[in-house]
Write a protein that binds this DNA or RNA. Structure first.
Length: 120
DNA sequence: AAGGTGACTTTTC
DNA sequence: TGAAAAGCCACCT
């Protein structure tokens, strides 16, 4: 029978990707956006993480480009994300940042992204 | 259907 | 080097 293959929404695709991030590793919103084909959609990715409801999606492994947690004073626990990561073995420095060079996850070389076009 | 919003990123001064 | 502003994208009224 034919299963109509609906194109995943950007959010769904992001969740699927995030789900494949191994414990102890982190990625940036920009990275996820790039893997999804829209290097400039980091913001949308952040929004996608905010919309995560599925407990199987390790949203805590997605942080901003500075290696810091972006959730700034959201609801109850701004430090929940950090705690979860520390339990996985991710280390934070004195500034509360993660060394992306050490914990950043690279499923494969993706350096061949589109050349950034000058905006102005 | 158009406009607003936001867990971001990059460029400039 | 650090801070500020603008840009970009997808989703929701």
């Amino acid at each position: 029978m034919v299963v109509r293959k609906r194109r995943l929404t950007f959010y769904e695709a992001a969740w699927e990707l995030v789900r494949t991030i191994p414990p102890g590793s982190v990625v940036t919103y920009g990275q996820v956006a790039g893997w999804l084909g829209s290097p400039r959609a980091a913001r949308a990715v952040g929004y996608a993480m905010f919309s995560v409801r599925d407990p199987d999606v390790p949203w805590q492994r997605v942080i901003n480009h500075k290696g810091e947690i972006s959730i700034g004073g959201h609801l109850h626990r701004p430090d929940l994300q950090r705690r979860l990561l520390e339990e996985e073995g991710v280390e934070f420095d004195a500034h509360g940042r993660v060394d992306l060079a050490r914990f950043g996850w690279q499923p494969k070389r993706r350096q061949g992204l589109h050349k950034r076009r000058r905006l102005r």
